[in-house]
Design a binder for these strands. Structure first.
Lengths: 209, 209
DNA sequence: TTCTACTGACTTACTAGTCAGTCAGCAAGT
DNA sequence: ACTTGCTGACTGACTAGTAAGTCAGTAGAA
């Protein structure tokens, strides 16, 4: 919607339009802190500065609010990355680095990080959400990474390794470091970018002398 | 305690002694299914075949029961593995493989897997538990893995890589595949052993041709 | 008979979800 | 420009239901 059209709207209409996002943002913060079952919708409402009842004007119930949080945050960035991969013309290792770097940048954003951790802990209770996430993000992501590895093999840049069968394992250090920081951040913080760099270097050229 | 001494005990004394473990096992199953906040102690009691009140004869409250679950499951297997590493005499890559394989075998056991996932989701609520886990498992584990990498470098078997700084990243594919199976097991199951094998092969010799 | 592990109904506390009532903003009439 | 009545976004006290934690009483082993 153009800014001009938004300007025309009255105060209340504008507020009404902004509410869902405000609520989702607050809910993400509370869910991140207390988990799904442990969160109180009153806390969410307080954070927005509205009453609990108002939440129910915009979301059917607590579960739907949670689903909205996931859908809102996840978005559909994978397609863009896939497009980039398709038009990339350099060496396969460079492409691999770039793709992994992009996914990693996304995964380590606070909101996304929250969703990742919530999905891990609450996923079993929301199978449709897991399916959604799988088809929207994981599936295309694996396809993209697998394609790059295959391309490298075809062009004689990569060896044939077991990684062709588990392309998602390329992302494992990012996931592990997100979890690491979530749990042990107080003790020893890992820089996911640096960990990923180390991982990729080793991955590409091996540990052995 | 020797079996003979156990034999001497009366039925009730034996039962009393066995209770805590029974309760912890049941609690692990229920916590795994419903999460900490979502679990009902009545469900735990039902699973053991006792009443809810009995749980409170053995554990102060729900939190203490959860902590007992973690402490019971985690144990202290790390020391044994460290001992093995110290006496190992073959090539560093073989030692690395063996250590990672051992940790992986532990992490993929159902009870441990449950604890891992529960720690990820509930860890922030139980900081002392995280500290306990870090000092008991993570710290020694990192030290052990780091030592093996260093030994490989010293002996001229390994290159100097960023992995020396993040030895825990060696375990990331195991952690990632545990989470993967937890979330997407219904769709595409990953065999953690196979994923780890692929990861280690790539790790050691690199992807590049 | 005594002792004690165990019971389960009860109390207490909490929260998801509801709904009758409120009042700020808007627009139409003057 | 000013008043005014209406609208609907919002409120918050309330209901209904749930679950943690308690304790007087019970049953069965010793």
């Amino acid at each position: 919607m153009p800014a001009a059209a938004k300007q025309k709207k009255g105060v209340r209409a504008a507020q009404k339009e902004a509410r869902p996002k405000e609520i989702v943002e607050a809910a993400l913060a509370i869910f991140a802190r207390d988990g799904f079952a442990g969160s109180r919708l009153e806390d969410v409402a307080d954070r927005v500065g509205i009453s609990k009842g108002t939440i129910y004007l915009y979301f059917e119930n607590k579960e739907e609010l949670f689903k909205a949080c996931v859908r809102e945050t996840v978005g559909s960035h994978v397609k863009e990355t896939m497009k980039m991969a398709a038009t990339f013309d350099g060496p396969a290792p460079d492409l691999l680095r770039e793709i992994v770097r992009r996914i990693s940048a996304r995964l380590t954003k606070p909101a996304y990080r929250t969703i990742l951790l919530l999905l891990i802990s609450e996923g079993q209770r929301f199978p449709e959400l897991v399916t959604f996430y799988h088809s929207e993000i994981i599936g295309p992501g694996i396809e993209g990474l697998g394609g790059v590895i295959q391309r490298g093999v075809d062009r004689g840049e990569f060896r044939e390794t077991g990684l062709s069968k588990f392309p998602m394992m390329l992302m494992s250090p990012v996931i592990a470091s997100v979890i690491w920081n979530h749990l042990f951040g107080g003790n020893v913080e890992i820089d996911p970018a640096e960990a990923l760099q180390a991982h990729l270097d080793t991955m590409l050229d091996g540990l052995r002398k």
